Computed example of a mutant assay.
Amino acid sequence: MRLVIPAPSSGDAIQMRDDKLIALIAESRTIMAQITDNPGKSIPILAAEQGRCRVRMMKIAKLACLDPDIVAAIVNGRQPLKLTPAKLLANELPLAWAEQKRTLGFG
């Protein structure tokens, strides 16, 4: 359950910074850097070396391809209220940024 506190005036947008979403985006960038820094290693090997689930690692790595506008909205707390880390990972995100926005509820 989330408590939504309205902005002081109707002209201001409601901002709800979700630190878990931001951490997920940061983790995706870290994983993608590990993948590119180790071209001779597959994701299952990297995951095993780190004691991580390879499936989850692959899902998180895909978030490195999020539309920069979506990333900016999440960092600034302007993401849709229903967007959670679980929902972000559960969706099979398209590569097209416009489709990503529609899939995640950005308009």
Rank of each mutant, 00 (worst) to 15 (best):
A98W: 13
D69V: 03
L83W: 04
P85A: 08
V55E: 02
D12V: 05
A61W: 12
N91V: 12
M57H: 02
M16I: 03
L24N: 03
M58D: 09
P85Y: 06
I31W: 02
P85H: 02
P94C: 08
E27K: 15
V4A: 10
I74Q: 13
A90N: 13
Q34C: 08
K41N: 10
P80S: 12
Q34I: 00
F106P: 13
I31Q: 03
Q34P: 00
P68M: 11
A98S: 15
S42F: 01
I25F: 05
R17V: 02
A61H: 11
I31T: 05
K82P: 00
R29S: 10
L93K: 09
I5V: 15
I25Y: 02
L3N: 12
P80Y: 01
K62I: 04
S9A: 03
D19A: 08
L104C: 10
D18F: 04
P80W: 03
L88S: 09
L3F: 09
S28K: 04
T84C: 12
K101W: 00
E92Q: 13
M1C: 06
L93M: 11
I45N: 10
F106E: 13
L46D: 10
C53K: 10
D37H: 03
P6T: 01
K20R: 15
P39T: 01
P8A: 10
T30Q: 03
G11Q: 12
E27I: 03
A98K: 14
N76W: 00
E92N: 15
I5R: 07
N91C: 14
N76G: 15
R56D: 15
P80Q: 07
C65I: 00
